[in-house]
Amino acid sequence: MKYQLDKHPIDQVGVEERVARFNSRSIKKQSKVQAIKLAISMLDLTTLEGKDSAGKVRQICAKAVRPWEGMEDVPSVAAVCVYPNHVKTAKRALGDSGVKVASVATAFPSGNSTLKIKLEDTRFAVNEGADEIDMVISRGRFLCGEYDFVFDEIAAVKEACGEAHLKVILETGELDSYQNIRLASDIAMDAGADFIKTSTGKIEPAATLPVTLVMLEAIRDYFYRTGKMIGMKPAGGIRKEKEALQYLVMVKETLGEAWLSPHYFRFGASTLANDLLMQLQKEATGYYQSLDYFSID
């Protein structure tokens, strides 16, 4: 397929005004509690630091299965996201809890490596037991206009994934324009992505609402064209419950309720978890909460 940058022009002002509208929705009381629980069940609890250790991975796994002991009926999160060398530890710690293990691969976060190494990286993570692979695209090549290269790379990684789900990280903070983001989304979906994901979390700006809206609209158009539902994962920079709820509103109003499930929507985050729990507790008790009473991540 021949990809062209100007195939889907994006109305920047329109996107930003639409997002401003989403932010004015007021979600209170019972609906808020429900939305918070849904957001928790959509979390990809993430630890992607150079200093990650087996202990740290086990700790977030424990938190993933049971986010908080202080309250009944808080759901488990969707997945734990780690580097490939920690997949085995995470898999063992999660056992049969139903929480998935996602692993970043393909020379995360820069993606600057050879295809051979990227594929090996992916196969290693899958063999260790990863249920989901988060790959990064080659932004440098993309920005040079080498769209076919990017497409082929994603397709090759998809093949290496086998049964594992593939999430394709566009790293929107480096793509410069909505137009680029839209095109990268289209390429990723055509090449076999199960999810498209905004960011690695290592670059500012990471996930933002306008960028996510552009990607959601790409997912919608892809669905109309092929009938296939692709998932969305904003990652990085979402730290507050209020922002998370704004994302959920946007998903519902752009793609509909079918996407309001951990199968099709995820948050890549770590600090967001505690804020969600704090707001949940605030709703239950009426008192504003303190991080002193929640786990240190």
């Binding site: 009426g286 008192y287 504003y288 909460q289 303190s290 002193d292 009473y293």
Partner: peptide, 8 residues
């Protein structure tokens, strides 16, 4: 009440 209940 806010000044005295806030957990932080």
């Amino acid at each position: 009440p806010q000044f005295s209940t806030h957990m932080d």
